[in-house]
């Protein structure tokens, strides 16, 4: 279980998070939605310790993350970065198998390679992509490689930052189904950030909407369309007028 309590974060004079409270039950899929620049990426980065919150507490399985042993803590996580963040100095398969080639999860090289190729297949990439370098791939292919890397070591908790941004509708469908499957079949706990309402409906057990630095609404995906929350309503229906200003 992941719990964020009253998280605050400013960059200079910009107060991005103003008291975020978020609850993700074990084995469920949480989708975080919200306008561009509202702090969704920052929120999941705080959980991983990549951004230090100014105030507030983050608990994973009841334990404060700042007190946890960093190595064993991170070993439980997978993360898909919004921009992919592939290592451009190594071929695709070594990117995917990065965790399996070193550290506590280390396997023989051939085995790691086979797992990488299998994960690539699951994100819709052919085996011959394995030997290419990230710079030789299209943006959407890079994103899928990054996704394969996030799930390669089969972590318990996975964060996906816009997994379907930049993908065609068919590939988006494949990725949405994959994420759903990871939660249902493998029992992983996931937080997904997305702007795509189709993804929300496929992936989510629960939805949280971030705006003005706080979670404005959170609830099961079934209540998405009749939440009665003006922020969520405007967002779900993509209306220009409402409480959310277009310029921010």
């Amino acid at each position: 279980m992941i719990e964020l309590r009253d998280i605050h974060k400013s960059f200079g004079s910009k107060h991005v998070l103003r008291g975020v409270d978020l609850h993700v039950e074990k084995g469920t899929s949480m989708v975080v939605i919200g306008g561009s620049g509202t702090g969704k990426s920052v929120t999941i980065r705080t959980v991983l310790g990549l951004v230090r919150p100014d105030r507030g507490q983050i608990l994973v399985d009841g334990q404060d993350v700042t007190l946890a042993d960093r190595d064993s803590f991170l070993a439980r996580f997978g993360m898909l970065f919004q921009a992919g963040a592939l290592f451009d100095s190594m071929p695709v398969w070594q990117n995917v198998a990065f965790r399996l080639l070193r550290g506590s999860l280390r396997r023989p090289r051939e085995e790691a390679r086979a797992i990488a190729i299998e994960k690539l297949r699951r994100v819709g990439l052919k085996p011959d992509v394995a030997e290419l370098y990230p710079a030789e791939l299209s943006g959407g292919m890079q994103k899928r490689v990054a996704l394969a890397r996030a799930i390669a070591a089969e972590p318990e908790i996975i964060f996906f930052d816009e997994p379907t941004a930049g993908l065609d509708p068919i590939m988006s469908g494949v990725i949405n189904d994959l994420i759903r499957e990871i939660v249902t079949d493998m029992g992983a706990t996931t937080i997904t950030i997305t702007h795509d309402m189709t993804s929300v409906r496929t992936i989510a057990d629960n939805v949280a909407m971030l705006h003005d630095g706080i979670i404005q609404w959170t609830g099961p995906v079934s209540r998405l369309d009749h939440s009665g929350n003006p922020y969520l309503d405007q967002f779900v229906h993509g209306r220009a007028d409402g409480p959310i200003e277009a310029i921010r």
Binding site: F81, A83, A85, F87, D88, F98
Partner: peptide, 15 residues
């Protein structure tokens, strides 16, 4: 690597 979040990715991959 820093600018393209590769350093952050390293950290999340326990390195």
């Amino acid at each position: 690597m820093k600018v393209t979040e590769q350093i952050d990715a390293l950290v999340t991959l326990s390195t």
